[in-house]
Structures are given as structure tokens and as C-alpha cells.
Design a binder for these strands. Structure first.
Lengths: 196, 196, 196, 196
DNA sequence: TATGAATGAGACTTCATTCAT
DNA sequence: TATGAATGAAGTCTCATTCAT
């Protein structure tokens, strides 16, 4: 029983890594089997089909890639708001975290696929909304704490979501941007100018 | 002569549309041939290989998707700077531009592929840099015109590039964001607060 | 395990026969599969590619077609030298042996191919040299036994090699030559005229 | 009219050279067209099919590769018999005759093909017989001139034919043999030992 | 006299999947 | 719990050939 669970995990992990490197369509069961060190049909013992495997991979990512994993709103105070927001964003950026890099790559695969096949479309959108809503809650908290102007707070949250999201994309493409400065700038811009 | 050119264009267009719908790997020569209404080997009369066809599609997009097609820096003045910047960005957004929708989808395909196969990687990066540099030139112009504070002007331009880029991505995914507000907000934020 | 080995052998044998009949290039995997009674992709379970299959066929022939399989030098004596040489040569000639006929045909295929693709060139030459050297050793033995004049013994051995080789070629082409007489004549000519 | 004839010859020549290099099956009409510098369908203006082209190539070779082109029996005398025989053979050997090298390669192609398709089989055999008969006439002449023992004269002629034929084969394969010595030896062997 | 454009047949190969063991 | 053996469908690509121009 333990062995089964182990192989299952190995298959998932191998698939995960291969998806990041070769894409979903570019990854064959043969490749996965070889990486795990099992035979091709063995995969069918654990997953009824390639599609099911894909979906499982998706769900695993889906489960982990959540706003609350990066930002803890309930720990935000007027004093640390800007700082928490800043460090949360930075922790999302692939470069800073190897694991993230692969996750993001596979995620991008799914996002692209989502536009074509409707299997994941819903969940992808849900995932993006999780972040959008997370930033909204965050802005609300900021307003509540008196560090963010209530005006256009929804657009502000979306701007933050977009920014952090695309910084990741650029990192993934290997384009170097001054992401700390950019993120800082984005945050500063949406915050109330107390000095005024 | 005309006939060849016509079929050539038909193949390109069909490929283009199919790439947008099914992805590069998900599009077979059989599908293209069927869509055009020719036989599979006929494609080889016009393109030496599938790779060559892919590359041509890529170059066509690459040729058109340029910063200067959307923003005309030389026509910017202190007075219309904000407005021009705003309208230029809006014109890039898929929803407002049917044609753009497909272009962006295929472009995304290439971007994803670029991370894996190094065929287009260089050109993709070049393309992204074209936009990054475009916004930089834009900020410089803004500084020159006295409507943008010189401080962190590079990070500002990157922020704008990221924002407009990712608004497109969200639209592609079918996630509705208040993109006009977001874009407005982004622009306002980077502009000098003359009222201060 | 046994099943695999069996199919493997069946593929090899079918390939062998088809090569003899239609040539290497003239034999498709479809033809092989049909002859064996399996599906085309099944061949790939046993051989990674057509080239690999070709090479295996080549090696099988290569392993069997050896001078020592036809001539046993160590059993030659002054008395039986001429006779052993004669019977060894005769046993090589295709007509006398159905199996040989196919082997020779396929071998000729490889020889022809060898001139073009350098895959087998080296081994083909090695094979020919095996026979050339075999006859040289044979002549040396003859000299040692005192039944062959040492003069030009190398040219003599080459003459024998050429003769037996081309008798085969003629048989393959269906040209009837008095091969027994020819071979006899060739042997007689190179032997020391003791009676003179 | 002249132009037509010229192109016709160019096609033949190109085909000839390509056959020698890539084999008959390995040579496509596209390759021929490219080498000549014309379009693929243009070949069909001069030859009704690839098979027809192949046959023409065959006939051209067939017309030139004749015993009488290398050996002039009517000029043989008792004195020069051995010498003429020797030089005639040497002139047939590819190494000594650049042109011959290609001819022999293509000829070998046809010989191999002949075993499979019955198109050329008859003519190939006829060609080989031309040489066999040539050597027979040659031996008869030798007998008539009193320099060759009448006994087994047919087998002797066949031995000579085989020998010179296979020296060519070895040269083609790039196996160096002492062909002058071999040929000399073969001739000496079949000649009457006048010194006895 | 030649070619531009196209095609049906078929080549090798890979894939996800099945099923008896 | 896993695999050995096999397969139908589909992929890219090449070939000899056709036909209107």
C-alpha cells in the first residue's frame, strides 16, 4: 500500500517536471515512465488515462498556488502593511524560489491549454480570481487600516494582481526586469500619500 | 504566380487561426490542409517543412506586433501625453481589437514554446524588449516634456509594459477586469503630480 | 520471454527473406509486418528503428559468413589439401545450398549499400578481408605442407578468393558457369606441379 | 531540336552519376531535376516515366560495356597474345579508368536489381555472356595460335572472365588487391607452358 | 519546350491505450 | 502491483506522376 502511494507520487512529480520542460503535449507517457523507472502501462495502474494524470497534476498545483499561501492579511497592520505586501509579492516571484519556477511554468501551460480545452478553463479562472479577490481583500484591509485611499480600490487591487503576475511571466521568459523596484513602485502608487 | 501567392496566404491564415485554437503542437498539417481545401502534400510545395511554416507564421506576427504600431511617440506633447498613452494602450487590448485577439493567442503560444525550444526564444525576447524599450522611450519623452518625474523612470516604463501586457493576458483568459480603469490608474500613478 | 524472442526471430527472418527478394530499400516495414502477421508498430517494440533492424540483419549475416565456417585449415594435410580446398569452395557456392542463396543475395545488398552509406562499409570490408586473409593462411599452409610454391603466394590466395567470390555472383545472377571445373582449374593452377 | 537533345543528354548524365552515388531507388526525380537545373515535370517531356529513364540509362551502359571495347581479338598474334590479354584486362579495371568506376557502380546496381525485377535480367545476362563468349573466342584464338592448351578451354575462359570481373568488384569496394599480379597470374596459368 | 501547382500512395515513426499474465 | 507484447490512429514527410498553361 505504501509502495503504491510512493509510485503514485513519483509519477506525479516526474510528470510535473516534464510538463515544465516539454509542455503537456510534448510529454509522452513513455517519457514519464522512463523518468520514474517503471513501464508505460504501469502508469495506468495509478491513473486511468493521460487526461486523468494531467488533471491530477493540475489539481495539485491548484491546491498549492493560493493567495493565502503568500500573503497573510490577518497579520497586516497599518505599520507593516506596505512591508507585508511587498515581501508577499517578492516571495511569489519565480527567481527567488526554484520550486516556484517549475510551478509557474506548468501553470502557464495550463493557462494556455485552458483557452483551448474547457477542462480546466473554469478552474484556471477560479485560480486567477482567487488572487484578484485576495488583492481586493488586501486593499479593503488597507482602507480599513487607513493606509489606502478607498477610491478605485478594486482597480488598484487588479493593478497589483496584474503586476505581480506579469513580473512572473517576464522572469519565466528570462527577461530581466527590476522587479523589486517595479513592485515597490506599484505598491507605493496605490498607497495613500500620507505626506501630502 | 498569383495562384501560388494566394494558396500561400491561405495556408498561412489557416495555420494562424488553427494555432490560435488548437495550439502549435495541436495543429497538424492535415488540419491545415483540410481548412484550406488542399491536399496534405500540397503544403510542402509552399513550405519545406512544418517548422518552416511555424517560423513564417512567427515572423508575420513578429513583423506586425511592434510598439510603434500602437504608440506614436513623436506625436506626443505635454498636453496630449497622458491621452495618447492611454489610447495607445487601449488599442493593444484584445477585446477592443478583434484581430489582436488571435494574434495574442498565437503569440502566447510562441512565448510558451520559446521557453522550451530555443528556436524563437531570441526573437521573443527581442519582441518583449521592443515594448520595454518603447515604454522607456515614452517615459523619456514624458520627462523631456516635463510631465513625468525622472526618478525611477525605467521602473515606471517597465511597470507600464507589464500592466498593458497582462491586461491582454487576462482578457485572453476571459477574466473580466476593469482594464480601462487599471490602465488609467497605472498611467496616473507614473505621471508627475502637477497639483502637488 | 519466449514469445518476445519468437516474434523477434520471426521479424528477423521475414526481413531477411524480403531483403533478398526486394532489396533493403524496397522492403518496407509494412511488408515485414504483414509477412510476420503483426502490426507495423509492433516491429518497434522489438527494434528501435528500421535502421536498427537492418543493422541486426547485417550482424547476423556477418556473424555466420566467415572463412572458417567453410574451410578448416588445421585439418589440412599434404594429402588432402587440394581436396579440402576444393570442397570448401564448393560448399560456399549458393546453388548447392538454398540457405546460402538468400544469404548471398542479402550480402550483396549490403555490399552495394556499403559503397553509399558508410554504416556498414567498414564491416563489409572486414568481412571481405576475412576471406582474403583466410585464403592467405591457406596458401601459407600449402607452402608449409610443400604443396604450394611460395612464389606469389599472396596473389595466388587473392586469385582464389576472387574466383570463389565471383562464382557466387554468377550463380546469383542465374548465369550458369562450369563452376566445379573453374574452381578445380583455379586450384590446380596455384598448386605446385610436383610431377613436372 | 538541338536544345531538346541537349537536355535529354543532361538528364541521362545526371541520372547516371546519381545512380552511381545513391543507387537507383535512392535517386529521385527531384534530385535529377535539381542536378540538371530543370523542373521535375520537365523530365516527363523527355522520358515517359522513371522506369523508362532507368531503362534508357541501362541501355546506354549496355551499349558501351562490351568485350570488344577492351579486347581486340583480331589483332592478337602468338607473340603479343599474352600482352594483349593482359593490357585489355587492366584497361577494364576501374582504378585505371575513371569513367569505368561510375559505369561499374551503376552496372552493379542493375545487376542487383536484375535479380529482383525481370526487366533487365535478360539483358544483364546477355551482357555477362558477351564477356564470357568474348573470353571464349579469345581462348579459341589462343588455341589457334598455339599458345593455349585446348583442354578445358571453356573453363579457362570463364576463369578469366570471373577474375577480371571480380577484380573490378574489389576495387569498387575499396579493397586493395594486387590486381596486376593476380591478372598476370590468371593469364599465365591458362597459357600453355611452352618452356616445358 | 518547359513548368507551376497539386496530389494519392505510401514511407518511417510516435502515441495513448489494451489485455493477458 | 506491475509488465510484456501488441495495436489503431495519427503524425511528418517524400515520391512519382498529372495537367493546365
Amino acid at each position: 500500500m505504501k509502495k503504491k502511494e510512493k509510485t503514485y507520487q513519483q509519477i506525479l512529480e516526474a510528470t510535473f517536471i516534464l510538463f515544465a520542460e516539454f509542455g503537456i503535449q510534448g510529454t509522452s507517457l513513455a517519457m514519464i515512465a522512463e523518468k520514474v523507472g517503471i513501464s508505460k502501462p504501469s502508469i495506468y495502474y495509478h491513473f486511468p488515462s493521460k487526461d486523468a494524470l494531467i488533471e491530477t497534476v493540475f489539481k495539485v498545483i491548484f491546491a498549492d498556488y493560493r493567495f493565502d499561501n503568500y500573503f497573510q492579511i490577518d497579520k497586516m497592520t497599518a505599520k507593516n502593511f506596505e512591508k507585508k505586501l511587498y515581501s508577499g509579492g517578492i516571495s511569489m516571484i519565480p527567481e527567488t524560489n526554484e520550486e516556484n519556477f517549475i510551478v509557474m511554468k506548468v501553470l502557464n501551460e495550463f493557462i494556455l491549454t485552458a483557452g483551448r480545452e474547457h477542462n480546466y478553463a473554469g478552474e484556471i479562472v477560479e485560480l486567477q480570481k482567487d488572487f484578484l479577490l485576495g488583492f481586493e481583500r488586501c486593499m479593503d484591509k488597507g482602507v480599513e487600516l487607513g493606509v489606502v485611499d478607498a477610491k478605485d480600490s478594486k482597480a488598484k487591487s487588479q493593478l497589483l494582481a496584474l503586476t505581480i503576475d506579469n513580473i512572473s511571466n517576464y522572469m519565466l521568459m528570462g527577461i530581466q526586469v527590476e522587479y523589486r523596484k517595479i513592485w515597490k513602485l506599484a505598491i507605493t502608487n496605490i498607497m495613500e500619500r500620507v505626506d501630502k
